[in-house]
Simulated assay, not measured.
Amino acid sequence: MAWRIFLWSVLALTSPLVVAQRAPVTQSFDLRVSWAPEPVRVEGKASLVYELHLTSYAKAPLRLASIAVVDDDGHALATFEGKALEAVLGRPDHPADKDPTRIPPGVNAVAYLSVPFDPGVAPRLHHRVTYTTDLASASPMAIEGGVFAVTSRTSLALGPPLRGGPWAAIYNAQWERGHRRVLYATNGAVHVPGRFAIDWIRVGAQGGFAHGNGAKPTEWLGYGADVLAVADATVVSTGEGIGEAATLAEHAMQKVPLEDAAGNYVALDLGDGRYAFYEHLQPGSIAVKPGQHVRRGDIIGRLGFTGESTGPHLHFHVADADVPLAAEGLPYGFEHLHVIGHYGDIEAFAQGKAWDRASPASGKVLDNSFPAPLDVVEFPQK
């Protein structure tokens, strides 16, 4: 009898009816957010601006179908799919097929996200990513990850970096070579120093940014303009000694090494781990020295055409370290931002066309806000 009981037990353990059914396991993406996002107010509306890195560990190409930003209650703050997904995706390897959604094995993709955010709460967020394989019969699969907690601290309200105007805020998160999409891995970690960088270019009342054809830096409307301290601060570093080409064509023929990309620059310590950077300044124009205390509105240099630049402008951004490239770009706002108009697209700006005036004619004043891409702004004269 005992042997019969033993045999029944063995058969029961090996019966397909009682063997545990394991769910299929597949290799897919590693999801990471390398910077803890802080809210920013763009034209008065709060949002989170950050990057989701997706690295494929699969053995075959995967095709992204959607990315959703989800809170702990399962509510989606934003979902990106179709053309919207393609618009936010970037690939450091610059695929020849121009298809950023098809991720080969071992390749990293970056989703440059901008998500509406309620500043009254500080939730923990994560991402739900759906994808398929290249097989026609493949069913969509989903993973969740890339968890982060929103960083909450006092927002940074700055004074004007320039006088008068009109000044065009040249930036756009969708430009492939725009500041937002330029990653630097110079010290063992990848950073986006220009996450909130703006290139300020002076424009005319009826459009245009230069006298004549703008072939010389001195013909640009903003060239030589006073550059101002945006807050009471301490000068933490300066970079000088970079010369200036006589013409834009001559400059374009020069190879600018990465260490000289910022041109002549000034960095101010704003406190609380935040540093303001002013780049591409005119040779010999820097009027401050490291360790010097400056007051809001003090002249610290003049707008020029040095470093990695396609035309005279003031590059301005705020970062978390006193280094031009190996730092994370931080959000900020201008205490009183007078928006008087807007360019519909960068082509209209580049062709010297007129910008669209705000209605009413006096424009609008935003408090503690970041401008929208291609906004035209007027700063106080004094």
Results as ranks from 00 to 15, higher is better:
V203T: 12
W220D: 06
K255F: 13
T238V: 15
G224D: 01
H211E: 08
G222Q: 09
G239L: 13
G204D: 08
N213E: 05
I198R: 02
A231L: 09
N213D: 15
V192Q: 09
G241K: 10
A249D: 13
M253E: 12
A168C: 14
I170L: 13
A168D: 03
V203Q: 03
T154C: 05
A252R: 13
A205V: 12
A173S: 13
I201K: 00
R163H: 05
I170G: 03
A205F: 08
I198N: 09
R195H: 11
G224C: 02
P257K: 12
L183H: 12
V192R: 07
M253H: 08
G243T: 05
G194Y: 09
G222P: 06
R163N: 02
L221A: 09
Y184L: 13
G165H: 07
A215G: 09
A210K: 05
L158A: 04
D232W: 02
V230N: 00
G239E: 10
G204Y: 02
G159Y: 00
H211D: 10
R202C: 03
R202H: 12
H251E: 10
L183T: 08
V182W: 14
G214D: 07
V192L: 05
A231I: 05
E176D: 13
W200S: 05
R195P: 11
V235W: 03
F209N: 04
A185W: 08
A225L: 03
A252S: 13
A189E: 11
Q174E: 14
G164Y: 02
N213T: 12
A205R: 15
P193L: 01
A168I: 05
V192I: 14
A231W: 02
A246R: 10
W175Y: 11
W175V: 02
E219R: 06
Q174L: 15
G159E: 00
A249C: 08
T247A: 00
T186A: 14
G164H: 00
Q206S: 07
G239R: 12
T186P: 01
W220M: 03
I242E: 06
V236G: 10
H251Q: 15
L162N: 00
G212S: 03
K255Y: 07
